[in-house]
Nucleic acid binder design. Structure first.
Length: 211
DNA sequence: GTCCTGGCAT
DNA sequence: ATGCCAGGAC
């Protein structure tokens, strides 16, 4: 349900759904019409169908080792389930996480998954990154601007004025604004779900990688 | 890589 | 109103 649909929109539907079909077996036994009806309003009805089919497959053949064998489950969802539900050491790389990794040039450990997602969704935004309040700004500043801009300007994207519109070239993806590095105080990397991730004085992102 | 599809930014 | 975004399927 969380594919392309916001959490707030999903939660109540998810709870109702689990109350009605608490297990894969029970969902598998449901009529397709009921599944579609229960999915109404969540968008992308194909996901509801896929979920139903996946449940049927799990009901008959059990859980596959490779979750991407289930219909509707790609690399991202498989990694997300692996990390959050199964406790596996895999990093779900959605566009938010991908963007953070690109801008910092850093490979984060799976332990940082939740913090990375929230950072990418609330601070390291695609269009207008809030570098001023970013806890990993210093990491992004260490990345040459060259690596954040396409080699050739995209013809289909008009140049924009803005804070980072440097070098007379558009920054279609809105990369972070590089500045001279400067010491920053230690503090929590991120806040909302109280994930116990803290940063150090020198290389903040290393604490997050577990390196 | 392209297409799908609903949400979202502009 | 228009175009971009984003996981998945192919």
């Amino acid at each position: 349900m969380l594919q392309q649909t916001q959490v707030e929109r999903v939660v109540p539907r998810y709870l109702d759904w689990l109350e009605r079909w608490p297990s894969a077996d029970e969902l598998a036994a449901a009529a397709v019409a009921d599944v579609i009806r229960a999915w109404q309003g969540l968008g992308y009805n194909r996901r509801g169908l896929n979920l139903h089919r996946a449940a049927q497959r799990v009901a008959t053949e059990g859980w596959p080792d490779d979750l991407t064998e289930l219909p509707g489950v790609g690399p991202y969802t498989a990694a997300a389930i692996g990390n959050f539900a199964l406790g596996l050491d895999v990093l779900p790389v959605d566009t938010n996480v991908s963007r953070v990794q690109e801008r910092t040039g850093h490979r984060f450990s799976p332990a940082a998954a939740q913090a990375l997602m929230d950072l990418g969704a609330t601070v390291c935004l695609a269009r207008i990154p809030r570098c001023g309040v970013s806890s990993i700004r210093s990491a992004a500043e260490a990345v040459p601007l060259r690596r954040l801009v396409p080699a050739t300007p995209r013809a289909d994207v008009a140049p924009r004025d803005g804070v980072g519109a440097s070098a007379g070239r558009p920054r279609p993806r809105g990369g972070p604004v590089p500045r001279p590095g400067r010491p920053r105080p230690a503090g929590p990397l991120w806040n909302e779900s109280h994930t116990a991730v803290t940063v150090s004085d020198t290389r903040p992102w290393d604490n997050v990688t577990g390196a």
